[in-house]
Lab assay of single mutants.
Amino acid sequence: GKMTGIVKWFNADKGFAFITPDDGSKDVFVHFSAIQNDGYKSLDEGQKVSFTIESGAKGPAAGNVTSL
Rank of each mutant, 00 (worst) to 15 (best):
G24N: 04
M3S: 05
A17R: 00
A12C: 15
D44S: 12
F16S: 02
H31P: 12
K48E: 05
S55M: 14
T66S: 06
G5L: 01
T66F: 00
A62T: 10
G56E: 11
A34I: 06
K14D: 11
M3G: 04
I53C: 14
F10N: 02
F16D: 01
F51V: 02
D44E: 14
G59R: 07
V7C: 02
H31C: 15
Y40Q: 13
V30S: 00
D27C: 13
V28Y: 05
F51R: 00
M3L: 08
I53A: 05
K41G: 11
V7K: 00
A57Y: 06
P60D: 14
F10I: 15
E45D: 05
N64S: 09
G63E: 09
V49S: 00
K8V: 07
L68R: 15
G1T: 12
H31G: 05
M3F: 07
A62D: 13
S42D: 09
W9R: 03
A34E: 11
L68M: 11
Q47L: 09
I53V: 12
G1F: 08
D38S: 10
F51D: 01
G56D: 11
I53Y: 09
N64G: 07
G63Y: 01
A17V: 08
K48F: 07
A57I: 10
G59W: 07
S50C: 14
K26L: 09
T66P: 15
I35K: 01
D27G: 10
V65G: 14
T4M: 05
S55D: 13
K48A: 07
K14I: 14
S50L: 08
F32N: 03
V7S: 00
F18D: 01
S42A: 13
E45T: 13
V30F: 14
E45R: 12
S50A: 10
A34C: 14
S67P: 04
D13R: 05
T20N: 03
G59S: 08
A17M: 08
D44F: 15
V65Y: 01
P21E: 01
W9T: 03
A12G: 06
K58S: 14
H31K: 08
G1D: 10
F16P: 00
A34D: 13
G59L: 09
S42Y: 12
D23M: 02
D13H: 08
G59V: 11
A57N: 12
A17G: 15
L68V: 15
K41E: 10
V28A: 02
I35F: 14
G1P: 09
K58A: 14
G46Q: 02
G59Q: 11
T66W: 00
G56S: 10
S25L: 03
I6D: 01
F16M: 12
K14P: 02
E54C: 15
P60R: 09
T66Q: 13
S55W: 11
D23R: 02
G46K: 03
A34W: 10
S33D: 11
G5M: 01
S42Q: 10
N64Y: 05
T66A: 06
N64W: 05
A61W: 06
I53Q: 07
G39I: 08
P21V: 05
D22Y: 03
G15S: 07
T66D: 15
F18A: 09
K26I: 09
K14Y: 13
D27P: 09
N11T: 05
S25Y: 03
Q47N: 05
Y40P: 07
Y40R: 10
E45V: 14
A17E: 00
T20R: 07
D23H: 03
N37E: 09
K48G: 03
K58I: 13
V49N: 00
A12Q: 11
D13T: 09
D27T: 05
F16H: 06
N64D: 13
T4D: 02
Q36V: 14
F51P: 00
F51Y: 13
F18H: 06
V30I: 09
G56A: 11
H31R: 08
G56K: 08
E54W: 06
G5E: 00
A61H: 11
G24V: 01
A61S: 11
F32R: 06
K8F: 03
V65R: 03
M3K: 10
N11Y: 06
V30Y: 05
W9D: 02
L43D: 01
V7E: 00
S67L: 04
A61K: 10
F10C: 14
F51E: 00
T20V: 08
H31M: 10
D23T: 03
P60V: 10
G63M: 05
F32E: 07
V49K: 00
F18E: 03
G39C: 14
G24E: 02
V28M: 09
G1Q: 12
I6L: 05
G5K: 00
D44V: 13
V30C: 05
K58H: 15
G15Q: 12
F16K: 01
V28I: 14
S33H: 09
V65K: 15
G39N: 08
T20P: 00
K41L: 14
K14H: 11
A34H: 12
K2A: 10
A12E: 10
M3N: 04
K14E: 09
F29A: 04
S42E: 12
Q36N: 11
V7F: 03
V49H: 01
V49Q: 00
D13N: 06
T52C: 14
E45M: 12
E54A: 06
K41F: 14
T66R: 04
S25D: 04
T66Y: 00
G5S: 02
I6K: 06
I19W: 00
N37V: 12
M3I: 08
S25P: 02
F29M: 14
K26Q: 12
D38M: 10
F51N: 00
P21W: 03
N37L: 13
S25I: 02
K26C: 15
E54T: 07
S67N: 15
P21R: 02
G1Y: 08
D38G: 11
G59N: 11
A17F: 14
F10E: 01
D27I: 05
W9Q: 03
K8N: 05
A57V: 13
F32L: 13
P21F: 04
K26G: 13
A12I: 11
N64V: 12
A62C: 15
Y40G: 11
A61M: 12
L68S: 15
G1M: 10
N37G: 14
Q47A: 09
T52D: 08
T20C: 10
V7H: 00
N64E: 11
G24W: 02
I53K: 05
A17W: 04
D22R: 01
F18P: 00
G5C: 02
K41W: 14
S67Q: 13
S50I: 13
D38H: 08
G15P: 01
K8H: 08
L43C: 05
V28W: 04
S50T: 12
V28C: 11
S25C: 05
K48P: 06
A12H: 10
I19H: 00
G15N: 06
G59F: 07
N64K: 05
G5I: 02
F51H: 00
T52R: 06
F10V: 15
K2L: 13
D13V: 08
T20M: 07
T4P: 01
S67C: 15
N64M: 09
F32I: 14
D13P: 03
I35E: 03
Q36H: 12
T52K: 05
S67M: 04
G59M: 09
P21D: 01
G59D: 13
G39A: 09
G5Y: 01
E54S: 08
V65L: 12
G63R: 07
